[in-house]
Write a protein that binds this DNA or RNA. Structure first.
Lengths: 244, 244
DNA sequence: AGTTGACTCTGACCTTGCGTCATAGTTTAC
DNA sequence: GTAAACTATGACGCAAGGTCAGAGTCAACT
Protein backbone atom coordinates (compact mmCIF):
# COMPACT_ATOMS: atom_id res chain seq x y z
CA UNK A 1 0.00 0.00 0.00
CA UNK A 2 1.32 3.38 -0.99
CA UNK A 3 0.18 6.83 0.00
CA UNK A 4 -0.41 9.65 -2.43
CA UNK A 5 3.04 11.08 -2.15
CA UNK A 6 4.66 7.82 -3.09
CA UNK A 7 2.34 7.17 -5.99
CA UNK A 8 2.92 10.68 -7.23
CA UNK A 9 6.67 10.26 -6.97
CA UNK A 10 6.63 6.92 -8.75
CA UNK A 11 4.34 7.84 -11.58
CA UNK A 12 4.86 11.55 -12.04
CA UNK A 13 1.16 12.23 -11.58
CA UNK A 14 0.52 15.17 -9.30
CA UNK A 15 -1.22 14.67 -5.96
CA UNK A 16 -3.89 17.06 -7.06
CA UNK A 17 -4.55 14.93 -10.10
CA UNK A 18 -4.80 11.82 -7.95
CA UNK A 19 -7.41 13.54 -5.82
CA UNK A 20 -9.38 14.34 -8.89
CA UNK A 21 -9.06 10.86 -10.37
CA UNK A 22 -10.25 9.47 -7.08
CA UNK A 23 -13.26 11.70 -6.74
CA UNK A 24 -14.42 11.13 -10.30
CA UNK A 25 -14.01 7.38 -10.01
CA UNK A 26 -11.33 7.20 -12.66
CA UNK A 27 -8.84 5.86 -10.17
CA UNK A 28 -10.47 5.36 -6.78
CA UNK A 29 -8.08 4.87 -3.91
CA UNK A 30 -8.01 1.20 -2.99
CA UNK A 31 -8.60 2.10 0.65
CA UNK A 32 -8.75 4.99 3.02
CA UNK A 33 -7.31 5.16 6.52
CA UNK A 34 -9.59 6.18 9.37
CA UNK A 35 -8.33 9.71 9.01
CA UNK A 36 -9.14 9.72 5.33
CA UNK A 37 -5.70 9.24 3.84
CA UNK A 38 -5.78 7.57 0.43
CA UNK A 39 -4.03 4.24 0.03
CA UNK A 40 -3.19 2.62 -3.29
CA UNK A 41 -2.36 -1.02 -3.97
CA UNK A 42 -0.83 -2.72 -6.98
CA UNK A 43 -4.13 -3.14 -8.72
CA UNK A 44 -4.58 0.62 -8.54
CA UNK A 45 -1.16 1.14 -10.07
CA UNK A 46 -2.04 -1.18 -12.92
CA UNK A 47 -5.16 0.78 -13.52
CA UNK A 48 -3.23 4.00 -13.36
CA UNK A 49 -0.95 2.73 -16.08
CA UNK A 50 -3.93 2.10 -18.31
CA UNK A 51 -5.26 5.53 -17.51
CA UNK A 52 -1.98 7.21 -18.37
CA UNK A 53 -1.74 5.47 -21.71
CA UNK A 54 -5.15 6.76 -22.66
CA UNK A 55 -4.34 10.16 -21.28
CA UNK A 56 -1.23 10.35 -23.45
CA UNK A 57 -3.59 9.93 -26.36
CA UNK A 58 -5.66 12.91 -25.23
CA UNK A 59 -8.73 10.95 -24.35
CA UNK A 60 -11.01 12.91 -22.03
CA UNK A 61 -10.85 11.50 -18.52
CA UNK A 62 -14.55 10.76 -18.51
CA UNK A 63 -14.16 8.64 -21.60
CA UNK A 64 -11.19 6.83 -20.12
CA UNK A 65 -13.31 5.91 -17.15
CA UNK A 66 -16.09 4.72 -19.39
CA UNK A 67 -13.74 2.62 -21.42
CA UNK A 68 -11.90 1.01 -18.55
CA UNK A 69 -15.08 0.37 -16.61
CA UNK A 70 -16.88 -0.95 -19.61
CA UNK A 71 -18.28 -4.40 -18.89
CA UNK A 72 -16.75 -5.63 -22.11
CA UNK A 73 -13.38 -3.99 -21.62
CA UNK A 74 -10.59 -6.07 -23.10
CA UNK A 75 -7.10 -4.98 -22.19
CA UNK A 76 -5.52 -6.54 -25.23
CA UNK A 77 -7.84 -4.89 -27.65
CA UNK A 78 -7.25 -1.61 -25.85
CA UNK A 79 -3.51 -2.02 -26.12
CA UNK A 80 -3.73 -2.71 -29.81
CA UNK A 81 -5.76 0.41 -30.37
CA UNK A 82 -3.41 2.44 -28.23
CA UNK A 83 -0.41 1.23 -30.16
CA UNK A 84 -2.12 2.06 -33.41
CA UNK A 85 -2.90 5.55 -32.19
CA UNK A 86 0.60 6.07 -30.90
CA UNK A 87 1.97 5.07 -34.27
CA UNK A 88 -0.23 7.62 -35.96
CA UNK A 89 0.91 10.24 -33.53
CA UNK A 90 4.51 9.36 -34.24
CA UNK A 91 3.90 9.69 -37.94
CA UNK A 92 2.28 13.05 -37.36
CA UNK A 93 5.35 14.27 -35.54
CA UNK A 94 7.60 12.95 -38.27
CA UNK A 95 5.61 14.98 -40.75
CA UNK A 96 6.06 18.07 -38.62
CA UNK A 97 9.80 17.49 -38.48
CA UNK A 98 9.87 17.21 -42.24
CA UNK A 99 7.89 20.39 -42.55
CA UNK A 100 10.24 22.26 -40.24
CA UNK A 101 13.26 20.94 -42.13
CA UNK A 102 11.66 21.98 -45.39
CA UNK A 103 11.23 25.51 -44.14
CA UNK A 104 14.82 25.57 -43.00
CA UNK A 105 16.06 24.57 -46.41
CA UNK A 106 13.66 26.06 -48.86
CA UNK A 107 12.12 28.90 -46.91
CA UNK A 108 8.53 29.38 -46.04
CA UNK A 109 7.27 30.19 -49.50
CA UNK A 110 5.40 27.11 -50.58
CA UNK A 111 3.20 26.68 -47.60
CA UNK A 112 1.60 23.43 -46.71
CA UNK A 113 -0.62 22.88 -43.75
CA UNK A 114 -1.15 19.19 -44.28
CA UNK A 115 1.28 18.33 -41.51
CA UNK A 116 -1.04 19.95 -39.00
CA UNK A 117 -3.95 17.90 -40.12
CA UNK A 118 -5.15 15.45 -37.52
CA UNK A 119 -8.32 14.23 -39.15
CA UNK A 120 -7.18 10.63 -39.61
CA UNK A 121 -5.98 10.42 -36.06
CA UNK A 122 -9.11 12.00 -34.63
CA UNK A 123 -11.30 9.75 -36.66
CA UNK A 124 -9.55 6.62 -35.48
CA UNK A 125 -9.69 7.81 -31.89
CA UNK A 126 -13.39 8.45 -32.27
CA UNK A 127 -13.91 4.95 -33.57
CA UNK A 128 -11.88 3.46 -30.76
CA UNK A 129 -13.98 5.33 -28.24
CA UNK A 130 -17.15 4.22 -29.90
CA UNK A 131 -16.10 0.63 -29.98
CA UNK A 132 -16.09 0.72 -26.19
CA UNK A 133 -18.69 3.27 -25.35
CA UNK A 134 -21.64 2.17 -27.38
CA UNK A 135 -22.10 -1.52 -26.83
CA UNK A 136 -25.57 -2.45 -25.62
CA UNK A 137 -24.06 -3.83 -22.44
CA UNK A 138 -22.48 -0.51 -21.66
CA UNK A 139 -25.68 1.41 -22.29
CA UNK A 140 -27.54 -0.86 -19.96
CA UNK A 141 -24.87 -0.48 -17.34
CA UNK A 142 -24.98 3.26 -17.74
CA UNK A 143 -28.71 3.28 -17.13
CA UNK A 144 -28.56 1.04 -14.12
CA UNK A 145 -25.70 2.91 -12.56
CA UNK A 146 -27.12 6.37 -13.21
CA UNK A 147 -27.57 8.16 -9.93
CA UNK A 148 -25.38 5.82 -7.95
CA UNK A 149 -22.98 7.46 -5.59
CA UNK A 150 -19.38 6.46 -5.07
CA UNK A 151 -20.59 4.85 -1.84
CA UNK A 152 -23.12 2.78 -3.70
CA UNK A 153 -20.50 1.54 -6.06
CA UNK A 154 -18.18 0.54 -3.30
CA UNK A 155 -21.06 -1.23 -1.69
CA UNK A 156 -21.80 -3.18 -4.83
CA UNK A 157 -18.16 -4.11 -5.16
CA UNK A 158 -18.19 -5.36 -1.59
CA UNK A 159 -21.24 -7.50 -2.19
CA UNK A 160 -19.67 -9.00 -5.26
CA UNK A 161 -16.47 -9.72 -3.39
CA UNK A 162 -18.53 -11.45 -0.73
CA UNK A 163 -19.57 -13.98 -3.34
CA UNK A 164 -15.92 -14.66 -4.10
CA UNK A 165 -15.20 -15.03 -0.42
CA UNK A 166 -17.82 -17.77 -0.35
CA UNK A 167 -16.20 -19.39 -3.34
CA UNK A 168 -12.84 -19.21 -1.66
CA UNK A 169 -14.16 -21.27 1.20
CA UNK A 170 -14.90 -24.20 -1.08
CA UNK A 171 -12.03 -23.83 -3.48
CA UNK A 172 -10.60 -27.21 -2.48
CA UNK A 173 -13.80 -28.93 -3.64
CA UNK A 174 -15.05 -29.74 -7.12
CA UNK A 175 -15.63 -26.63 -9.27
CA UNK A 176 -18.44 -28.52 -10.96
CA UNK A 177 -19.99 -29.44 -7.63
CA UNK A 178 -23.39 -28.25 -6.53
CA UNK A 179 -22.27 -25.54 -4.12
CA UNK A 180 -19.87 -24.03 -6.62
CA UNK A 181 -22.47 -24.06 -9.35
CA UNK A 182 -24.95 -22.33 -7.08
CA UNK A 183 -22.44 -19.60 -6.42
CA UNK A 184 -21.77 -19.13 -10.11
CA UNK A 185 -25.47 -18.66 -10.71
CA UNK A 186 -25.61 -16.21 -7.81
CA UNK A 187 -22.80 -14.25 -9.42
CA UNK A 188 -24.46 -14.19 -12.81
CA UNK A 189 -27.74 -13.01 -11.31
CA UNK A 190 -26.01 -10.36 -9.28
CA UNK A 191 -24.30 -8.95 -12.34
CA UNK A 192 -27.47 -9.06 -14.41
CA UNK A 193 -29.41 -7.31 -11.70
CA UNK A 194 -26.94 -4.62 -10.81
CA UNK A 195 -24.83 -4.09 -13.88
CA UNK A 196 -25.81 -5.54 -17.22
CA UNK A 197 -27.46 -8.66 -18.62
CA UNK A 198 -24.82 -11.27 -18.05
CA UNK A 199 -25.20 -13.93 -20.73
CA UNK A 200 -23.38 -17.22 -20.43
CA UNK A 201 -20.99 -16.00 -23.05
CA UNK A 202 -20.12 -12.84 -21.20
CA UNK A 203 -19.87 -14.78 -17.98
CA UNK A 204 -17.36 -17.04 -19.63
CA UNK A 205 -15.34 -14.03 -20.75
CA UNK A 206 -15.33 -12.70 -17.22
CA UNK A 207 -14.16 -16.08 -15.97
CA UNK A 208 -11.07 -15.82 -18.11
CA UNK A 209 -10.25 -12.43 -16.63
CA UNK A 210 -10.69 -13.86 -13.12
CA UNK A 211 -7.90 -16.33 -13.76
CA UNK A 212 -5.84 -14.23 -16.12
CA UNK A 213 -3.35 -12.88 -13.62
CA UNK A 214 -4.56 -9.30 -13.88
CA UNK A 215 -5.93 -7.00 -11.23
CA UNK A 216 -9.26 -8.82 -11.12
CA UNK A 217 -7.52 -12.05 -10.36
CA UNK A 218 -5.63 -10.37 -7.55
CA UNK A 219 -8.67 -8.79 -6.02
CA UNK A 220 -10.52 -12.07 -6.07
CA UNK A 221 -7.66 -13.96 -4.51
CA UNK A 222 -7.53 -11.30 -1.86
CA UNK A 223 -11.20 -11.82 -1.10
CA UNK A 224 -11.21 -15.64 -1.18
CA UNK A 225 -7.62 -16.66 -0.76
CA UNK A 226 -4.93 -17.80 -3.17
CA UNK A 227 -6.34 -19.69 -6.12
CA UNK A 228 -9.90 -18.46 -5.85
CA UNK A 229 -9.76 -16.71 -9.20
CA UNK A 230 -8.61 -19.89 -10.86
CA UNK A 231 -11.32 -21.85 -9.08
CA UNK A 232 -13.99 -19.36 -10.17
CA UNK A 233 -12.79 -19.67 -13.73
CA UNK A 234 -13.19 -23.44 -13.69
CA UNK A 235 -16.53 -23.31 -11.94
CA UNK A 236 -17.83 -20.89 -14.54
CA UNK A 237 -16.60 -23.06 -17.39
CA UNK A 238 -18.37 -26.07 -15.92
CA UNK A 239 -21.53 -24.03 -15.47
CA UNK A 240 -21.53 -22.71 -19.01
CA UNK A 241 -20.76 -26.12 -20.51
CA UNK A 242 -23.50 -27.72 -18.48
CA UNK A 243 -26.11 -25.34 -19.90
CA UNK A 244 -25.29 -25.85 -23.56
CA UNK B 1 -6.68 37.89 -49.19
CA UNK B 2 -8.67 35.13 -47.58
CA UNK B 3 -11.58 35.30 -45.20
CA UNK B 4 -11.80 33.32 -42.00
CA UNK B 5 -13.67 30.44 -43.52
CA UNK B 6 -11.01 29.88 -46.13
CA UNK B 7 -8.15 30.15 -43.69
CA UNK B 8 -9.91 27.75 -41.38
CA UNK B 9 -10.48 25.30 -44.22
CA UNK B 10 -6.90 25.51 -45.40
CA UNK B 11 -5.21 25.21 -42.04
CA UNK B 12 -7.63 23.23 -39.91
CA UNK B 13 -7.74 25.97 -37.30
CA UNK B 14 -11.26 26.72 -36.14
CA UNK B 15 -12.82 30.10 -36.82
CA UNK B 16 -13.27 30.60 -33.13
CA UNK B 17 -9.57 30.06 -32.60
CA UNK B 18 -8.77 32.59 -35.31
CA UNK B 19 -10.95 35.12 -33.53
CA UNK B 20 -9.05 34.51 -30.34
CA UNK B 21 -5.65 34.65 -32.00
CA UNK B 22 -6.65 37.93 -33.57
CA UNK B 23 -7.88 39.54 -30.40
CA UNK B 24 -4.86 38.53 -28.37
CA UNK B 25 -2.47 39.73 -31.05
CA UNK B 26 -1.05 36.31 -31.71
CA UNK B 27 -2.27 36.40 -35.28
CA UNK B 28 -3.90 39.73 -36.05
CA UNK B 29 -5.95 39.81 -39.22
CA UNK B 30 -4.00 41.61 -41.90
CA UNK B 31 -6.99 43.82 -42.63
CA UNK B 32 -10.61 44.26 -41.86
CA UNK B 33 -13.36 45.17 -44.29
CA UNK B 34 -15.59 48.12 -43.48
CA UNK B 35 -18.09 45.73 -42.03
CA UNK B 36 -15.50 44.18 -39.78
CA UNK B 37 -14.76 40.97 -41.64
CA UNK B 38 -11.26 39.65 -41.04
CA UNK B 39 -8.95 39.34 -44.03
CA UNK B 40 -5.69 37.40 -44.06
CA UNK B 41 -2.82 37.73 -46.51
CA UNK B 42 0.14 35.48 -47.18
CA UNK B 43 2.24 37.04 -44.46
CA UNK B 44 -0.47 36.11 -41.98
CA UNK B 45 -0.42 32.54 -43.22
CA UNK B 46 3.32 32.37 -42.76
CA UNK B 47 2.92 33.60 -39.24
CA UNK B 48 0.17 31.12 -38.63
CA UNK B 49 2.48 28.34 -39.68
CA UNK B 50 5.00 29.44 -37.08
CA UNK B 51 2.27 29.64 -34.50
CA UNK B 52 1.04 26.15 -35.26
CA UNK B 53 4.50 24.66 -34.95
CA UNK B 54 4.87 26.12 -31.50
CA UNK B 55 1.34 25.12 -30.61
CA UNK B 56 2.09 21.52 -31.56
CA UNK B 57 4.80 21.68 -28.95
CA UNK B 58 2.29 22.78 -26.31
CA UNK B 59 3.68 26.24 -25.87
CA UNK B 60 1.15 28.56 -24.25
CA UNK B 61 -0.24 31.00 -26.79
CA UNK B 62 1.00 33.97 -24.81
CA UNK B 63 4.52 32.65 -24.94
CA UNK B 64 4.25 32.00 -28.65
CA UNK B 65 3.29 35.60 -29.15
CA UNK B 66 6.18 36.76 -27.04
CA UNK B 67 8.62 34.60 -28.93
CA UNK B 68 7.46 35.51 -32.40
CA UNK B 69 7.21 39.19 -31.58
CA UNK B 70 10.55 39.24 -29.86
CA UNK B 71 12.75 41.91 -31.40
CA UNK B 72 15.52 39.37 -31.66
CA UNK B 73 13.39 36.58 -33.06
CA UNK B 74 15.36 34.41 -35.41
CA UNK B 75 13.32 32.00 -37.45
CA UNK B 76 16.19 29.65 -38.04
CA UNK B 77 17.06 29.31 -34.41
CA UNK B 78 13.39 28.77 -33.64
CA UNK B 79 13.18 26.03 -36.24
CA UNK B 80 16.20 24.29 -34.82
CA UNK B 81 14.72 24.31 -31.37
CA UNK B 82 11.39 23.14 -32.68
CA UNK B 83 12.98 20.25 -34.50
CA UNK B 84 14.88 19.28 -31.38
CA UNK B 85 11.69 19.32 -29.34
CA UNK B 86 9.81 17.35 -31.95
CA UNK B 87 12.52 14.73 -31.90
CA UNK B 88 12.21 14.42 -28.15
CA UNK B 89 8.48 14.09 -28.47
CA UNK B 90 8.91 11.40 -31.04
CA UNK B 91 11.24 9.52 -28.75
CA UNK B 92 8.72 9.84 -25.95
CA UNK B 93 6.06 8.27 -28.11
CA UNK B 94 8.40 5.50 -29.15
CA UNK B 95 8.93 4.73 -25.50
CA UNK B 96 5.22 4.56 -24.95
CA UNK B 97 4.85 2.16 -27.85
CA UNK B 98 7.52 -0.04 -26.35
CA UNK B 99 5.77 0.07 -23.02
CA UNK B 100 2.46 -0.92 -24.54
CA UNK B 101 4.11 -3.72 -26.49
CA UNK B 102 5.81 -4.90 -23.33
CA UNK B 103 2.49 -5.13 -21.55
CA UNK B 104 1.04 -7.05 -24.45
CA UNK B 105 3.80 -9.60 -24.31
CA UNK B 106 4.78 -9.90 -20.72
CA UNK B 107 1.69 -8.67 -18.92
CA UNK B 108 1.42 -5.74 -16.63
CA UNK B 109 3.33 -7.19 -13.73
CA UNK B 110 6.64 -5.37 -13.75
CA UNK B 111 5.40 -1.87 -13.89
CA UNK B 112 7.45 0.97 -15.15
CA UNK B 113 6.30 4.53 -15.35
CA UNK B 114 9.44 5.95 -16.88
CA UNK B 115 7.81 6.17 -20.26
CA UNK B 116 5.39 8.76 -18.92
CA UNK B 117 8.17 10.94 -17.68
CA UNK B 118 8.47 14.24 -19.52
CA UNK B 119 11.04 16.02 -17.41
CA UNK B 120 13.75 16.22 -20.07
CA UNK B 121 11.32 17.52 -22.62
CA UNK B 122 9.81 20.07 -20.27
CA UNK B 123 13.21 21.28 -19.23
CA UNK B 124 14.35 21.81 -22.78
CA UNK B 125 11.14 23.61 -23.64
CA UNK B 126 11.63 25.87 -20.65
CA UNK B 127 15.12 26.72 -21.80
CA UNK B 128 13.95 27.42 -25.31
CA UNK B 129 11.32 29.77 -23.98
CA UNK B 130 13.84 31.52 -21.80
CA UNK B 131 16.26 31.96 -24.62
CA UNK B 132 13.68 34.16 -26.31
CA UNK B 133 11.81 35.70 -23.46
CA UNK B 134 14.59 37.10 -21.37
CA UNK B 135 16.87 39.09 -23.63
CA UNK B 136 17.36 42.70 -22.50
CA UNK B 137 15.86 43.91 -25.76
CA UNK B 138 12.71 42.00 -25.09
CA UNK B 139 12.38 43.28 -21.56
CA UNK B 140 12.73 46.82 -22.79
CA UNK B 141 10.16 46.21 -25.47
CA UNK B 142 7.82 44.72 -22.94
CA UNK B 143 8.08 47.79 -20.77
CA UNK B 144 7.54 50.22 -23.59
CA UNK B 145 4.64 48.32 -25.00
CA UNK B 146 2.91 47.72 -21.69
CA UNK B 147 -0.51 49.28 -21.74
CA UNK B 148 -0.64 49.65 -25.48
CA UNK B 149 -3.88 48.66 -27.11
CA UNK B 150 -4.20 46.72 -30.32
CA UNK B 151 -5.07 50.04 -31.93
CA UNK B 152 -1.86 51.61 -30.70
CA UNK B 153 0.13 48.77 -32.14
CA UNK B 154 -1.52 49.04 -35.50
CA UNK B 155 -0.84 52.73 -35.40
CA UNK B 156 2.84 52.18 -34.73
CA UNK B 157 3.02 49.67 -37.52
CA UNK B 158 1.44 52.20 -39.86
CA UNK B 159 3.93 54.89 -38.91
CA UNK B 160 6.79 52.52 -39.49
CA UNK B 161 5.41 51.52 -42.84
CA UNK B 162 5.16 55.18 -43.76
CA UNK B 163 8.93 55.37 -43.44
CA UNK B 164 9.25 52.52 -45.91
CA UNK B 165 6.84 54.23 -48.24
CA UNK B 166 9.19 57.21 -48.24
CA UNK B 167 12.08 54.89 -48.95
CA UNK B 168 10.20 53.35 -51.80
CA UNK B 169 9.89 56.72 -53.46
CA UNK B 170 13.65 57.05 -53.77
CA UNK B 171 14.50 53.44 -54.37
CA UNK B 172 15.92 54.22 -57.82
CA UNK B 173 18.49 56.55 -56.26
CA UNK B 174 21.71 55.78 -54.37
CA UNK B 175 21.14 53.83 -51.14
CA UNK B 176 24.15 55.61 -49.68
CA UNK B 177 22.79 59.00 -50.70
CA UNK B 178 21.79 61.66 -48.23
CA UNK B 179 18.04 61.22 -48.39
CA UNK B 180 18.27 57.47 -47.92
CA UNK B 181 20.65 57.83 -45.02
CA UNK B 182 18.33 60.29 -43.34
CA UNK B 183 15.50 57.81 -43.63
CA UNK B 184 17.59 55.03 -42.13
CA UNK B 185 18.36 57.23 -39.17
CA UNK B 186 14.69 58.08 -38.84
CA UNK B 187 13.90 54.37 -38.78
CA UNK B 188 16.50 53.63 -36.15
CA UNK B 189 15.27 56.42 -33.94
CA UNK B 190 11.70 55.34 -34.36
CA UNK B 191 12.49 51.80 -33.25
CA UNK B 192 14.58 52.98 -30.33
CA UNK B 193 11.87 55.31 -29.17
CA UNK B 194 8.92 53.00 -29.54
CA UNK B 195 10.25 49.50 -29.24
CA UNK B 196 13.77 48.86 -28.01
CA UNK B 197 17.22 50.41 -28.23
CA UNK B 198 18.16 49.78 -31.82
CA UNK B 199 21.94 49.54 -31.99
CA UNK B 200 23.71 49.61 -35.34
CA UNK B 201 24.23 45.90 -35.01
CA UNK B 202 20.57 45.13 -34.45
CA UNK B 203 19.65 47.51 -37.23
CA UNK B 204 21.90 45.57 -39.54
CA UNK B 205 20.21 42.33 -38.51
CA UNK B 206 16.84 43.86 -39.28
CA UNK B 207 18.13 44.97 -42.66
CA UNK B 208 18.84 41.39 -43.58
CA UNK B 209 15.29 40.39 -42.69
CA UNK B 210 13.94 43.25 -44.82
CA UNK B 211 15.59 41.74 -47.88
CA UNK B 212 15.36 38.10 -46.91
CA UNK B 213 12.24 37.19 -48.82
CA UNK B 214 10.14 36.63 -45.73
CA UNK B 215 6.96 38.30 -44.60
CA UNK B 216 8.77 41.47 -43.58
CA UNK B 217 10.19 41.82 -47.03
CA UNK B 218 6.72 41.43 -48.51
CA UNK B 219 5.13 43.96 -46.24
CA UNK B 220 7.79 46.49 -47.00
CA UNK B 221 7.53 45.98 -50.73
CA UNK B 222 3.81 46.43 -50.36
CA UNK B 223 4.35 49.76 -48.63
CA UNK B 224 7.06 51.10 -50.89
CA UNK B 225 6.84 49.11 -54.09
CA UNK B 226 8.78 46.16 -55.45
CA UNK B 227 12.39 46.20 -54.36
CA UNK B 228 12.00 48.53 -51.41
CA UNK B 229 13.08 45.87 -48.94
CA UNK B 230 16.24 45.25 -50.91
CA UNK B 231 16.86 48.99 -51.10
CA UNK B 232 16.36 49.39 -47.35
CA UNK B 233 18.82 46.61 -46.77
CA UNK B 234 21.50 48.32 -48.84
CA UNK B 235 20.83 51.71 -47.32
CA UNK B 236 21.18 50.27 -43.85
CA UNK B 237 24.43 48.56 -44.72
CA UNK B 238 25.85 51.82 -46.04
CA UNK B 239 24.69 53.61 -42.92
CA UNK B 240 26.22 51.11 -40.54
CA UNK B 241 29.49 50.95 -42.46
CA UNK B 242 29.71 54.72 -42.54
CA UNK B 243 29.52 54.94 -38.75
CA UNK B 244 32.24 52.43 -37.96
C1' DA C 1 -35.57 45.34 -55.54
C1' DG C 2 -36.58 41.74 -52.33
C1' DT C 3 -35.82 37.71 -50.14
C1' DT C 4 -33.32 33.76 -48.72
C1' DG C 5 -29.48 31.13 -47.04
C1' DA C 6 -24.96 30.99 -45.79
C1' DC C 7 -21.59 33.77 -43.52
C1' DT C 8 -19.66 37.06 -40.23
C1' DC C 9 -19.28 39.73 -35.99
C1' DT C 10 -19.28 40.31 -30.80
C1' DG C 11 -20.28 38.89 -26.23
C1' DA C 12 -21.45 35.81 -22.66
C1' DC C 13 -21.28 31.64 -20.57
C1' DC C 14 -19.63 26.55 -20.32
C1' DT C 15 -15.98 22.95 -20.16
C1' DT C 16 -11.60 20.18 -19.00
C1' DG C 17 -7.86 19.22 -16.26
C1' DC C 18 -5.56 20.58 -13.52
C1' DG C 19 -2.50 24.59 -10.29
C1' DT C 20 -2.81 27.30 -6.27
C1' DC C 21 -4.08 28.82 -1.99
C1' DA C 22 -6.46 28.53 2.61
C1' DT C 23 -7.82 26.10 6.50
C1' DA C 24 -7.75 22.24 9.34
C1' DG C 25 -6.56 17.68 10.87
C1' DT C 26 -2.48 13.82 11.09
C1' DT C 27 1.86 11.50 11.48
C1' DT C 28 6.59 11.23 12.43
C1' DA C 29 10.73 12.40 14.58
C1' DC C 30 13.36 14.31 18.07
C1' DG D 1 5.19 17.49 23.47
C1' DT D 2 5.98 20.18 19.95
C1' DA D 3 7.68 21.18 15.27
C1' DA D 4 8.01 19.77 10.53
C1' DA D 5 6.11 17.59 6.97
C1' DC D 6 2.13 15.36 5.36
C1' DT D 7 -2.86 14.85 4.25
C1' DA D 8 -7.81 16.30 3.20
C1' DT D 9 -11.40 19.29 1.55
C1' DG D 10 -13.03 23.37 -0.65
C1' DA D 11 -12.89 27.47 -3.28
C1' DC D 12 -11.05 29.93 -6.78
C1' DG D 13 -8.16 30.74 -11.10
C1' DC D 14 -6.51 29.62 -15.69
C1' DA D 15 -5.86 28.29 -20.74
C1' DA D 16 -7.84 27.37 -25.00
C1' DG D 17 -11.20 27.04 -26.89
C1' DG D 18 -16.76 25.18 -27.80
C1' DT D 19 -21.35 26.74 -28.00
C1' DC D 20 -25.13 29.67 -28.35
C1' DA D 21 -27.61 34.13 -28.97
C1' DG D 22 -28.54 38.39 -31.33
C1' DA D 23 -27.45 41.24 -35.04
C1' DG D 24 -25.37 42.56 -39.23
C1' DT D 25 -23.54 41.18 -44.23
C1' DC D 26 -22.92 39.10 -48.61
C1' DA D 27 -24.21 36.60 -52.82
C1' DA D 28 -27.51 34.85 -55.62
C1' DC D 29 -31.83 33.95 -57.40
C1' DT D 30 -36.34 35.64 -58.47
Amino acid sequence: MMIVHEVSELTGVSIRALHIYDRMGLLPASQKTESGYRLYDDAALERLQQVLLFRELDFPLKDIRKIIDSPVFDRNKALEQQIELLKMKKEHIENLIDLARGIQLRGVKHMNFDAFDTKKLDEYARQAKESWGSTPEWKEYEQKSAGRTVEDNRNLADRMMAIFTEMGQIRDQDPAGEKAQQLVKKLQDFITENMYTCSDQILSGLGKAYAGGGSMNENIDKAGGEGTGEFAHRAIEAYVQGRK
